[in-house]
Design a protein around this nucleic acid. Structure first.
Length: 134
DNA sequence: CTTCTGACA
DNA sequence: TGTCAGGA
């Protein structure tokens, strides 16, 4: 399939799909006319990549992870690269920090929403009838 | 009409 | 990432 179809099926902008290729995350073959040709399994891969990027993981790291994700099932102890494990552990810690950061912001926003709703409810009490006219 | 590369008021 | 250009 061409880039437009993959974009729809994976709801990923074509701009991103080309970017992923540029980052070495996917390498579609080319049609005679030069158009990119994607295999159907790339639909899932595109979604995976998008998710990883949305999680704040740098493309460099994603490139290292994808091959592992492909591994059908089971990990071979002999093939484990200590350097990669170390890098992934570091990435895991960054994710944790990011989660804490997001949690704080989500909580402060939630607090604001509650206060705002309280204020609106109070206003509605005294402001009977039409509510909020123009 | 769809895709390609390169570039950025 | 969006988006536009200029071409195939």
């Amino acid at each position: 399939m061409r880039i437009g179809e993959l974009a729809k099926l994976s709801n990923t902008p074509t701009r991103s799909l080309r970017y992923y290729e540029e980052q070495g995350l996917i390498r579609p073959s080319r049609l005679d006319n030069g158009y990119r040709d994607y295999q159907p399994y790339l639909i899932d891969r595109a979604v995976q990549i998008r998710g990883l990027i949305d999680s704040g993981i740098p493309t460099k790291i994603i490139a290292l992870i994808l091959p592992c994700l492909d591994t059908p099932r089971g990990i071979v102890p002999e093939d484990i690269e200590p350097e990669l494990v170390q890098i992934l552990a570091q990435e895991r810690d960054r994710m944790t920090q990011r989660i804490d950061f997001l949690t704080r912001n989500r909580d402060s926003i939630a607090t604001y929403i509650n206060a705002a709703n309280d204020a609106l409810a109070t206003r509605a009490d005294s402001d009977h009838g039409t509510g909020t006219p123009a």
